[in-house]
Amino acid sequence: MCENKFDQKIKAIRTDNGIEFINNKLREYFHSKEIIIEHTGIHTLQKNGRCGRQNRTIMRSVRALLFTKDLPKHLWAESVNTEVYLRNITPNDYGKTPFAL
């Protein structure tokens, strides 16, 4: 999808050594497409850059929401979905929503 949308070949994938990326089937697929797999160290958010910062910001907002409204922990996933939805419909510095961009 990314290659079609941006008309660019994917050169590398960077992962955090999550178990979803450690399997032979995926390695073989990446190898067949000549995609380099880069692994960052475990618990090194600073190497994940923008994605790590976004995740950290979202999680802080979710914790604040749960704590402020005294919500039970089993609503964690729903709170994450709500936070991401709100971020996607809130206009940014360019006056457009991320969804619209």
Rank of each mutant, 00 (worst) to 15 (best):
K96R: 13
K73M: 08
T82E: 12
I36E: 15
N81H: 14
F67K: 12
L86C: 13
F21P: 13
C51L: 13
E20S: 03
F30R: 11
R60Q: 11
G49T: 01
A64Q: 12
G41L: 09
I89P: 03
T90C: 14
Y85S: 10
R14E: 07
Q54N: 07
N48V: 05
I37D: 00
N17M: 12
R50D: 04
N24T: 07
R56D: 01
V62H: 06
I10D: 05
I89A: 02
N23H: 06
A77C: 10
K96S: 08
I36L: 14
N88W: 11
I36S: 10
E34L: 04
E83F: 06
R14T: 10
L66I: 15
N92G: 15
L86A: 06
I19D: 01
T15P: 03
F21M: 07
T40F: 03
G18R: 00
I35R: 06
G95R: 13
I37S: 04
A12W: 09
L45K: 04
N24C: 02
G49N: 00
F30P: 00
K47F: 08
R53V: 06
I13P: 09
I13Q: 06
A77G: 04
H43Y: 10
S61G: 13
K33H: 07
A77K: 14
D93Q: 15
N24F: 06
H74P: 00
T57M: 08
E34C: 04
P91T: 01
G52F: 00
T90D: 10
R50A: 10
H43A: 11
G95C: 07
S32F: 05
F67N: 10
I19L: 09
F30I: 11
R87N: 15
R87L: 11
W76G: 03
K9A: 00
K9Q: 09
K9R: 13
R50E: 02
D7A: 04
N55D: 04
T15V: 10
I22M: 05
L71D: 05
R14P: 00
L66R: 12
I89H: 05
L65G: 06
I13F: 14
N17C: 13
L71Y: 13
Y94K: 15
F21W: 09
V80Y: 08
K11G: 08
L71H: 07
W76S: 05
E38R: 12
L86P: 02
D7V: 00
G41H: 08
R60G: 05
T44G: 01
Q46E: 00
V84T: 09
E20M: 01
N88H: 13
R50L: 11
A64I: 05
S61P: 03
P72L: 09
S32T: 12
Q46V: 00
G49F: 00
T15W: 11
D16S: 02
R27Q: 14
H74F: 13
T44A: 07
